[in-house]
Structure formats: C-alpha cells, structure tokens
Amino acid sequence: MGKVKTSYSCGLDAAVDVVGGKWKALILWALHDGTYRFGELKRQVSGVSEKMLIQQLRELEADGVVHREVYREVPPRVEYSLTELGKALNTALLPLGEWGDAFMGQILAGKAKEQAV
C-alpha cells in the first residue's frame, strides 16, 4: 500500500482520500442497497477486476466505511455491507450522483468532442 497520511489539509482532502480512485465510490454506491457477497458485488460494479475489487474493499474496510463479515461455513461465505460511517459517506455522495445524472449528457458530449480533436 501507499504512504499513510498523518494529517489532512481540510475535510475534502480526508473524504477524497477515502473515496479516491475509479472504483471506491462505485463500490460504496452499490452497497447502499444492502449486504452483498463478493460475486454479487462484482456483478454490481461492472468492469472492476477481481484483484482490484479485493484491494479496494480492503482499503474501504481499513477506513471503517465497509464491514466484512466472514461466516465459518463450508464453503466459506463472506458478506460486505456499509458501516454507519459508510452510510453517512453515501449520503454525502448522493448530491454528487445527482449532479452526474443531471449533466451526464453534457459530460459525454464533452468527452466525445475532446476525443475527436
């Protein structure tokens, strides 16, 4: 893993540290519906590799926003859910998701225009 931060310059710095990267916000968003097993979660977050999903879930668990429950069965069952901290973070991400929904067409048009250049 990378260098461990010992301080943040502001609250946004702390929040981005937790949700930064391509997959973490999408994982958190998928978990807002409830508890998922690994395979179910992988299907919810399309495009993520198994290795990356494992890494991102470990980081989210270390940050205290995702709970990992291991059931001692054969075969072993592992379920992931949001902690209270994770639920609060998802609430904070809601306006960002709404912004993305509202401007998705504009964003895609800008990307297509950029690619055509």
Score class of each variant (00 low, 15 high):
1 M>D: 11
2 G>L: 13
2 G>Y: 09
2 G>E: 15
4 V>P: 04
8 Y>W: 15
8 Y>A: 08
10 C>P: 02
10 C>W: 10
11 G>A: 14
13 D>W: 10
15 A>W: 03
16 V>C: 09
21 G>L: 07
22 K>S: 10
23 W>I: 04
24 K>L: 03
24 K>Y: 05
26 L>S: 09
27 I>L: 11
27 I>S: 01
32 H>A: 00
33 D>P: 02
34 G>W: 05
36 Y>L: 06
38 F>Y: 14
39 G>Y: 05
40 E>N: 11
41 L>Y: 03
41 L>C: 03
42 K>S: 11
46 S>W: 09
46 S>F: 08
47 G>I: 06
47 G>T: 06
49 S>A: 10
49 S>D: 10
51 K>S: 13
52 M>V: 12
53 L>K: 12
53 L>E: 07
56 Q>T: 08
57 L>N: 05
58 R>Q: 15
58 R>E: 14
58 R>Y: 06
59 E>A: 09
59 E>H: 12
61 E>H: 09
63 D>I: 00
63 D>R: 03
63 D>S: 11
69 E>R: 10
70 V>Q: 05
70 V>D: 12
70 V>W: 00
74 V>D: 09
76 P>R: 08
78 V>G: 01
79 E>H: 03
81 S>P: 07
81 S>Y: 08
82 L>A: 09
84 E>S: 15
85 L>I: 10
87 K>N: 11
89 L>A: 13
91 T>S: 13
91 T>C: 10
93 L>Q: 05
93 L>N: 04
93 L>W: 13
94 L>Y: 14
96 L>T: 13
96 L>Y: 13
97 G>F: 15
100 G>L: 12
101 D>K: 09
102 A>M: 04
102 A>G: 06
103 F>L: 03
104 M>C: 01
106 Q>F: 05
107 I>V: 11
111 K>L: 09
